[in-house]
């Protein structure tokens, strides 16, 4: 940074013009793609925004937002999205451990890698239907638990409002962890062997090696995976909830999430303006989350380089 500043001060006016020209050139290069993105995403975002301020064609100001934000079902849905975020550290930890286990596995790595990744490529409705059956009160899981004498662990996994959201999280974790494993494993494999050899010569053990070398080296990937999964928990769990709760978010509102609230408002309750207002809230929440994660990422990367 210092070098650059000194150089530009020395070059004077000419150097100040160069970034401007290259910036224009960059915009020209990205313009076609930007226009497509603008049309696809920008248009729909703006349409939703406009709709959120209208009712039956009339401008109603913040009335729709006021209705949505005071709706206990929407607040419950937001709370559940927040609770699902707790699954992100679990996912990261699990993915990291499994990635290391696979990295250290000499035999059959390809098979294990495929096995771990398989859930991620399965269609969500299929997964949700299968787990919906497994988690029935008289389903496969409870039959198994009872057969091995663990009757006290047999629960009404999806029928009991106290545990239904946790049950759903377990399905999401099972499905999503494979993505993290593959991302992290790919990064770990690309790390230089010399670093590990040097660590071993210095006497670092298994845990020390991976905690102090692997973890910081793939921090970028870990944070990226964290961002993706956080966005998933906030705005990408609709399929799981819809299929496993038959579109209700039940029992009661135990598995209601904001996406389902939006869908039901728009397509079942015939209130597209309320769906739009809720979508704006969700958009803002996702945006805040992304900004927060990016800041964390910048800090952690800067911290890694400073070390």
């Amino acid at each position: 940074m210092k070098l650059t500043r000194v150089k530009s001060e020395a070059v004077g006016v000419v150097s100040r013009q160069r970034p401007a020209r290259s910036s224009r050139e960059a915009f020209l290069w990205i313009a076609p793609a930007a226009l497509v993105i603008l049309f696809i995403f920008g248009y729909s975002v703006v349409t939703v925004l406009i709709q959120s301020f209208r009712y039956d064609g009339d401008w109603v100001g913040f009335e729709n937002f006021s209705i949505v934000i005071t709706d206990p079902i929407f607040l419950t849905a937001l709370k559940h999205n927040g609770q699902l975020l707790l699954a992100v550290p679990v996912l990261i930890t699990l993915a990291f451990i499994i990635a290391i286990a696979l990295f250290e596995t000499r035999r059959g790595m390809r098979f294990y890698r495929s096995a771990v990744f398989l859930p991620y490529v399965l269609p969500i409705p299929v997964v949700a239907v299968v787990f919906g059956q497994i988690y029935q009160l008289n389903g496969a899981l409870n039959i198994f638990l009872k057969s091995v004498g663990l009757d006290f662990l047999a629960k009404d996994w999806l029928g009991d409002p106290a545990i239904a959201l946790g049950t759903m999280s377990s399905v999401i974790i099972w499905k999503e962890v494979g993505f993290g494993v593959i991302l992290m494993l790919a990064h770990i494999i690309s790390l230089p062997n010399e670093t590990y050899e040097a660590a071993r010569i210095d006497g670092a053990g298994f845990w020390r090696t991976h905690f102090s070398i692997t973890r910081p080296a793939i921090l970028n990937t870990i944070v990226f995976y964290g961002v993706i999964e956080a966005i998933t928990m906030v705005s990408w769990v609709f399929n799981y909830v819809y299929v496993m709760s038959n579109g209700l978010g039940g029992p009661g509102n135990a598995t209601m999430v904001s996406e389902l609230y939006i869908y039901r408002s728009a397509f079942q309750n015939k209130a597209p303006e309320l769906a739009a207002a809720a979508a704006v809230f969700l958009f803002i929440a996702t945006l805040v989350l992304m900004i927060a994660f990016f800041r964390i990422q910048r800090r952690s990367i800067a911290g890694t380089f400073n070390k």
């Binding site: 920008g42 349409t47 406009i50 039956d56 064609g57």
Partner: peptide, 18 residues
């Protein structure tokens, strides 16, 4: 600029709601 353009697009093509 992008938001302004999208706003314009949205306003121009605003559907008759009902």
């Amino acid at each position: 600029g992008a938001v302004a353009m999208a706003l314009l697009l949205g306003a121009c093509s605003s559907s008759g709601d009902n």
